[in-house]
Structure formats: C-alpha cells, structure tokens
Amino acid sequence: MTSTEPPTDEHLVELAKTGDNGAFPELVKRYSRRILRVARNITNNDEDSEDVLQETFMKAYTHLDGFQGNSRFYTWLVRIAMNESLMKLRKRKTGRVVSLDEELSTGEDTITREIAVWEGNPEDRYSQEELRELLDTTIASLPEGFRTVFVLRDVEELSTEETADMLGLSIPAVKSRLLRARLQLREKLTRVFKQKGDDAFAFL
C-alpha cells in the first residue's frame, strides 16, 4: 500500500519560495477557513474580516522569504491575521478610546453566578450550525482583551507562550485573562444549556 501523505506546510513553503505555482495557493486553501474565523472573532464585522483574510495572505506571500520556520507556519499566519484584525478594530473605534484597564475592570472578574448542570451534551442536542452561531455571539460579547486571548488559546489552540508573545503580554496576564474569559463564556453558555430542573418539577 502506498500512502500519499499530503505535503507538510514547511515543504509547501519551501516550494513556494522557489517559485512553484501551486504551493502557495495550496497553503491558502489549507488555512483560509481558520484565518477567516480568527478575523471574524476579533473584528466582529464581516466586511473587515474579509479584508483581513485577503490582507493576511497578501502579506504572507510578500514576506514569505522572511519566514524562517522558527515557528509553525500557521502560528505565523495567525500573527499576521491578529495584527490586521486589531488594526481594523482600532480604525472603527474612532470615538472614545476605551483603555484596556478600563475594559478589563468592567469584566465580571471571576464571579460565577450560574451554578447549574447542563442538560445532556450540547453537541448532541444542537446542530453544528446552531452551536457555531451561539459560540460566535458569545465570543463577540467578551471584552477585547479577553476575546483575543481566548481566541488564540482555546479556539486556535496556540500555546500560552505563543499567545503572550503575539499580544505582548506576560504569561501571568495571559493566564488571568484566559481564566476570566473561560468563566464568562461558561456563564453565558450555562444560561442557554442549563437543565430546566425547576420547570420540569413545577407540576409537583
């Protein structure tokens, strides 16, 4: 049996650098969905995320020679997409600029109000489409400083170190924002998924 393993990112990058016509488009196909998701989650805006998607791959192509393979290619792409997304966000916030400290202090801290078990497995009870919609809305409701950390760590599954490096944060800052982001999302999802215990036994 011969297995035709798809070429690795590194191999495609090398081919693209030497002028292969198919290699870079292949990388674009491989990662366009995920880059669009990063852009959408950070900018919360369709038009901006479409621009970010295109800009990310344009910049990646232009700077391909500068990619030395010290990090994963995907991490490198996410870094470009994150910078582009944050720039879009800054442009839209033309009015009052909310400082990060101000924004973070209004986050509910580590308060947990909704203590309820969930009704079954949400994955079994909702379609992928419904879940995605719900996840996008809940992520969008997070303050920017939490959203960026959560998207990198828990959606795109970058390491704490990569996230800290990309956002210019210390490791403890990443961890504390991640904790608060996770708890806030847990809280929001619990409101949707919690077992309707009180209602179910209301007739008794």
Binding site: L36, N121, L131
Partner: peptide
C-alpha cells in the same frame, strides 16, 4: 463549575470553522 467549563472548552475546540463563502474564496 469544572464540569461546565470543561464542556464549554470542548464545544469551542470541537467546532469546525465555517467554509469560506465561494465568492470570497474566488476573490481571494
């Protein structure tokens, strides 16, 4: 809290990204 936070993360990590709309993909 632990159980529901675990489930929260599982949902986020398990949710595949949406396909890029065809028109946007062509443009890209």
């Amino acid at each position: 809290i632990l159980d529901t936070t675990k489930k929260t993360l599982k949902i986020y990590k398990g949710c595949a990204p949406k396909a890029v709309p065809a028109a946007l993909e062509d443009k890209l």
